[in-house]
Nucleic acid binder design. Structure first.
Lengths: 214, 214
DNA sequence: GATAAAATCAAACGATCGTTTGATTTTTAT
DNA sequence: ATAAAAATCAAACGATCGTTTGATTTTATC
């Protein structure tokens, strides 16, 4: 599906507003006004408000054809390096599309989801979990990773941490006295800290054998 | 503030519906119907829909007077044991009030928040972060914890992981072939796995010195 | 059991919702 | 230049929104 400049404009405004105020909390008149088009253009172009968010998902999902799948095959990288690449790739993707991933997280919190959208999300999550599973199994076979790792919870920690960090970034700014930092600089800073933090977390967890008391 | 049985009934129904469909996605008529009261009773008791969700926050926040603060002082526990207690306490709290914490997470995703509510959330998060900070500093002074730990990102990982695990629990069920498990049993199972996972994560990260390449 | 207060209700309020209509303008194709 | 197609618009549609009204019933107080 190809979209005209006007259509893309509508989609992008909708993305921002859905992210800020939620789907139900955003009216088509809000979108029309900020996108500088007539209200009726939304139904005219997309059919309905519901179809609009589906178009947004369709578009963003089609863009996310990840380069990870091929990079993962690289023989020159050791398991830890591959995991680190996966972490940075996830950080880049989520922090580079904060509005969209905010919407996606909101969708996952809802119990009344559109089948079309939840299918998209399920497929994407499946890909992510399988990717990490493949990487960790590789590391285990190479003998560098410990055996008893909860694969799906490792994914949960990766995406849960990034999502939550993005959701609470204002709070992070405040308690770390970074309120004077320029927005762009702060984004870079947060990315770097997240990267260090998650790599440290994953490396030590995945490589060290140890038992948990209690 | 004291609430009658009817008022509590309304609050509890509202909590469930806000959790399932979001605040804007839930109508006062939905709430009234499921709570088996007349629509006007919501304005009559709480003043408005907005005041209703504020009452919900007020109530749940007042209940959450954590026992952690005192248990943390226990001299007989070593730093790791205290961290483990903090983890289990967080899991219990979030998984025991999934609806409310779902709403709270949604609020944090919104940029147009009610000041009353975002104040409550900020205060709660501050408490949590300070608690973990205190524990980790204690471990560092005792010489068992490494020095370069991103304190606020440890909190982010703890709450981000639990929140995301709850949000995606259906997916977790599916990929781990647990679809036949009874709901109650699954909740216990997820709690146990989360506990093991997070304790393993924290212990290895917090105790082992190592540098991160890249 | 009379009186006041609290609770409950159906109905209606004005506002806003997503969507459609039908006329008009702009663009495209011949 | 002309006809067809696409885009744009103000206006209106019916539905639903949160809230209020005013009458009625229930409960509490003496």
């Amino acid at each position: 599906m190809e979209y005209s400049a006007k259509q893309l404009q509508i989609i992008e405004v909708a993305e921002r507003l859905f992210s800020q105020k939620g789907f139900a909390g955003t009216s088509v008149r809000d979108i029309a006004q900020e996108a500088d088009v007539n209200v009726s253009m939304i139904s005219y172009y997309f059919g309905s408000k519901e179809k609009l968010i589906e178009a947004l998902f369709q578009l963003r999902m089609s863009e996310s054809r990840s380069r990870m799948e091929v990079l993962i095959q690289d023989e020159d990288l050791n398991p830890i390096q591959k995991i680190n690449m996966l972490i940075d790739s996830a950080i880049d993707k989520l922090m580079g599309n904060q509005c969209f991933h905010n919407i996606m997280l909101r969708e996952q919190l809802s119990s009344e989801r559109t089948p079309v959208i939840s299918d998209h999300i399920r497929k994407l999550k499946m890909r992510n979990v399988e990717l990490m599973q493949q990487l960790i199994l590789e590391g285990q076979e190479a003998g560098v990773f410990r055996k008893n790792i909860d694969l799906s919870l490792m994914s949960t920690t990766l995406y849960g941490t990034i999502n939550y960090a993005i959701a609470t970034q204002d709070f992070y700014r405040k308690i770390n006295n970074l309120e004077d930092m320029e927005e762009e600089e702060f984004q870079k800073y947060l990315k770097r800290r997240l990267s260090q933090h998650l790599k440290s977390l994953f490396k030590s967890t995945v490589t060290n054998e140890h038992h948990i008391e209690n």
